[in-house]
Design a protein around this nucleic acid. Structure first.
Lengths: 212, 212
DNA sequence: TCAAAACTTGACCAAATGGTCAGATTTATG
DNA sequence: CATAAATCTGACCATTTGGTCAAGTTTTGA
């Protein structure tokens, strides 16, 4: 077929192929879920023989976990911390926008993550307890501090966070429905800009934030 | 159980078995998605031989569509209309509460619906265009009328609806994560009461509704 | 009472699926 | 250049899967 490539080092080839496979797998898992994904289709999508896929990822579960890990790592590194002395309005707004941008740019990953959660996170149950809990406790502490300082209204920090997660996630998960409603085949940057504006507006107002 | 059945009519038996199968299928599709669902497991869950399942539902796709139809029908019949002369605050509040209650009581259905949407609604694409669009246009019209009458603030009706859908759906889809965060194995009525209160508070405030 | 219709089910089956493997080829390295 | 290590791949396989079927049993309705 195409391999006129005398210059590829073994290591480079490994990295390229693993990447091809992971991308193909992401598409396949997104479209069919773990159980419905087919190794043969992943191989075809990646443009490699199935046996070659198994050379890099011994079995389906290993491949799926590799995809999930990538998603979770990306997620964990994507959003910065917040601190008590930050400006609430600015921080909440920037978090909403960052999270929504993430939902747009990593929509596939976001969707796979939701499917995994729906099924009770069978493949990352213990991993989540640790990371998510620490993440959320830190934000809740800051939000509570803001509340005590009268910088934000009497809102429940957990539910505020859930609200941000759910709304931003929604634009990735329900993209088919939303595109249908807006009579578009794809949602672009501009659409997401609109969504972000609406979300920021309603949520900031809803939190009764005293702008400093 | 109830069927000490020398007296079961054929029709009654049909209804009972179809129901058993549909319930089992709902669990199976929820836990494994369409592609990962196994007819044998559905049969076992329903307590029937697999061949008997195929007697009522000739193939997997028919069974899946039957489950989905049930979900969509339920969804369509679950929430009443709204009218221009209704009280905005009361209507939005009652819709949020109704939708959240639905997410709790029909959590399995809600999750299957999300999975179907994530995958681009391959099994109900045309069905959705019609029903959802009509549903949403009606609400958007009313919300816009309210806006013009100054009863609600300058919010985008579509995004308000998406916000309600996403947040209420979240408590069904991400139940595993939420239960983990709250260190509970199941979320009960009381939890949902709390969620509802928070949602209603933030959203009504966020919409700057002038209470009449 | 009895034949037709509806229902039940164990035994099967063809196709698909995840995964293996041995041998070939390519790349690295002393 | 030679040998080892890494990569590639067609052919293959055991198992699983959705689905069928023919032979039964039960219910219906006249």
């Amino acid at each position: 077929m195409k391999n006129n490539k005398p210059r590829t080092s073994l290591r480079a080839s490994r990295q390229v192929n693993e990447q091809k496979i992971l991308q193909a797998a992401e598409r396949e898992f997104e479209a069919h879920g773990y159980g419905g994904a087919r190794m043969q289709r992943i191989a075809d999508l990646a443009g490699l023989p199935k046996a070659n896929v198994h050379y890099y990822f011994p079995n389906k579960q290993d491949l799926y976990i590799a995809v999930l890990s990538g998603i979770v790592d990306l997620w964990n590194s994507a959003f910065g911390d917040i601190h008590v002395d930050d400006d609430p309005a600015a921080m909440i707004e920037s978090y909403i926008r960052a999270k929504l941008r993430y939902s747009q740019q990593n929509a596939r990953a976001a969707r796979i993550f939701t499917m995994e959660m729906i099924q009770g996170a069978p493949h990352l149950h213990d991993y989540l307890t640790d990371v998510t809990n620490k993440w959320i406790e830190q934000r809740v502490a800051v939000l509570n501090a803001w509340k005590e300082q009268g910088k934000v209204g009497e809102i429940d920090p957990y539910h505020l966070i859930f609200m941000i997660w759910s709304t931003t996630q929604y634009y990735a998960d329900y993209h088919a429905q939303i595109a249908l409603i807006f009579e578009k085949s794809v949602l672009d940057e501009t659409d997401f800009e609109q969504f972000a504006n609406s979300l920021v507006d309603i949520i900031l107002t809803g939190c009764r934030i005293n702008k400093s």
